[in-house]
Amino acid sequence: MSLVRFRFLLPLLVLTAAAFPARADEMLLATNDLSSRRISASESKAGPDVDFLREIARRSDADLKVAQMPLGRGLASMQSGAVDVMAGLSYRDEQARYIVYTDTPYSRCSTAFYTLNGQSKEIRDYRDLSGRQIGYVLHSTYFDRFDKDGNLNKVGVPEEQTLIDMLLKRRISVMIGTDCQVDYHLRHLGLTSTIEKAPYGPGNAVVLFLGVSKKSAWAQRIGALNRIIRDLVDEGYVERIGREFYRTPS
């Protein structure tokens, strides 16, 4: 091709590239965030985890897709590589076989027990859990004493929404969960005057990370994701969305 002809075609090539920009990389998020059932990732209020991942995707020039599924199926999808990322994960050696955890946690919470309003005062000590049906999410770990206690009457279900429904229907008397996540759901479901937190809590720290499937192409970009999460924490972004999502809706 002659230089003159190339100079003639160059503006056309630039215009074509502008008209058809390169497609952003896709990032598929598996979440059991209750709000994601009703709100898509493109809407303004999609739940704290989705909002957090949406900002990570934006800074990564990625197209975020959201797949709502129970925790167990989400972990299985991470293991197979069917999804790319999950948020709200505590570090577990077993899961680290197929998940790369980011090096900076983005949230710190604690384990809590919840009952119907007026009943929480009955649970002031770990021993008060004895004889009660306690709902928990399958494949979750809470704190060592509870996880290993085979004498408690535990009822495992796939997701937190089922626990809340069972508690409201009195099919269980207590549910266990991570306080920052459960408190958010109760506020946004309008249940803060119906379900309350028990005085007893183990006082443990639940540190939450973003996890990336080792079979995902995003695992090769873990360094970039680490930098983005550190920036979001340092900028106060995570704290801001926490204030937005955890305040009681009007």
Rank of each mutant, 00 (worst) to 15 (best):
F245S: 01
V238F: 03
V233T: 07
F143W: 05
A76V: 08
E160S: 01
L152E: 02
K65V: 12
G211T: 04
M78R: 03
F8N: 15
M1L: 05
V233F: 05
D125R: 03
Y98N: 13
L167C: 03
G74P: 07
K154G: 07
W218P: 06
G190F: 02
A217D: 12
G88A: 11
V66E: 05
S90I: 10
L10E: 08
H188R: 13
G135R: 00
G131L: 09
L116N: 00
A17I: 11
I99G: 06
T111P: 02
H139P: 11
G47A: 03
G81L: 12
E159M: 04
D49N: 14
Y200E: 00
S130M: 11
V174W: 00
G223Q: 15
P70L: 05
G156E: 12
D149W: 08
R73W: 08
R187H: 05
L116D: 00
A19K: 14
E159D: 08
T31M: 07
N117H: 04
S60E: 09
V238C: 04
S213V: 04
L163Q: 05
A217Q: 12
S2T: 13
K169C: 09
A112L: 02
T141R: 14
F113Y: 05
R170N: 10
Q95R: 13
L13W: 15
S42H: 12
D144A: 07
D149Y: 07
S110K: 15
L53C: 15
D144K: 11
V238Q: 02
D84R: 06
E160I: 01
A24H: 15
A224M: 08
S42A: 05
I164L: 02
V174S: 00
D149H: 08
I172C: 03
S193V: 07
E160T: 04
L89H: 07
M166S: 05
G211L: 01
Y91Q: 05
T31K: 06
G203E: 11
Y114P: 00
L168N: 11
L208D: 14
T31N: 08
K169W: 07
R108P: 06
R73Y: 07
R58S: 08
Q119I: 05
N226W: 05
I134D: 00
R124S: 12
Y106N: 03
G47H: 06
I222T: 13
R59N: 11
S193I: 03
P202W: 09
T104M: 09
P70N: 15
I222L: 11
G156R: 02
R37S: 09
I176L: 02
S77C: 13
P11Y: 14
N204V: 01
S35P: 06
Q181P: 04
A46L: 04
R221N: 12
T111G: 00
S216T: 08
K197L: 04
Y200D: 00
Q133L: 09
M86V: 14
R230V: 11
Q95C: 11
V238G: 03
R127K: 15
T111D: 00
S120K: 00
R73H: 11
L15F: 06
M78K: 08
N204T: 04
Q220E: 11
R58M: 14
T194S: 09
Y136H: 10
S193C: 06
N117E: 07
I195W: 00
A67C: 13
G190K: 03
A219K: 10
A19C: 14
L208H: 08
L152T: 01
P199Y: 01
E55N: 10
G47F: 02
T192K: 02
Y136E: 11
I134M: 00
I39C: 15
